[in-house]
Amino acid sequence: MSLLFSSRNLKLLTNPLNLENPITVQVLGICSALAVTVKMKPAFVMALSVTIVTAFSNLIISALRKSIPARIRIIVQLVVVAALVIMVDQLLKAFVYDVSKQLSVFVGLIITNCILMGRLEAFAMANKPWDSFVDGIGNGMGYGAILIIVSFLRELLGSGTVWGYPVMEKLGAFSVGYVNNGAMIMPPMALILIGVIIWIQRSRNKNLIESK
């Protein structure tokens, strides 16, 4: 176990959660992230799907990295990623149909999720399969963490529920005049929330602040 999780590998796993977060620091993978964060459940499934696809595409590309001809590199990467995404899409349709209906085209858009191509180019093409696999899991989790935070806030403040459980109603908030914030369900709120998350994160880690 200690061989599999050397301190370097542990860093690969934990860095993307904060200092190298794919969304808030590397600015990757925002495209498909925003539309699925109205409720926690689809956000969680999306995060899981992206983690699986990132980890396995990293693994496969890294294993093949010495044999891939440079000229068709991008196409090979896209084919591998697209194949994995189709697998995930088919599995979702077969076993969690309701969620796959909510995610609709956004499952397909994992293919062009920049996290994938970004990690494949930056990491998997130059590193060993196991390290790449761990790197993929780490980045998927970093992406997932932001998705979960955003969807938690949007579901709680926008619909008054957490994972479908009516928290606000049980607390009796509605009877004292509390109303759900309709703007939270609107897609633009996701952007503003991520902006605020970046603000908080950078206030705590001064070295992430961009120079003028």
């Binding site: 609107m186 897609p187 605020v196 970046i198 602040i209």
Partner: peptide, 28 residues
């Protein structure tokens, strides 16, 4: 916005996200 005095942690990416959010609200 480069000439505005944006709070340092919000500078660059952060303020851009919020900007896009506000623009999206306008487009609604």
């Amino acid at each position: 916005i480069r000439y505005s005095n944006v709070p340092a942690p919000l500078r660059g990416l952060g303020i851009t996200f919020i900007l896009v959010g506000l623009m999206a609200f306008a487009f609604m």
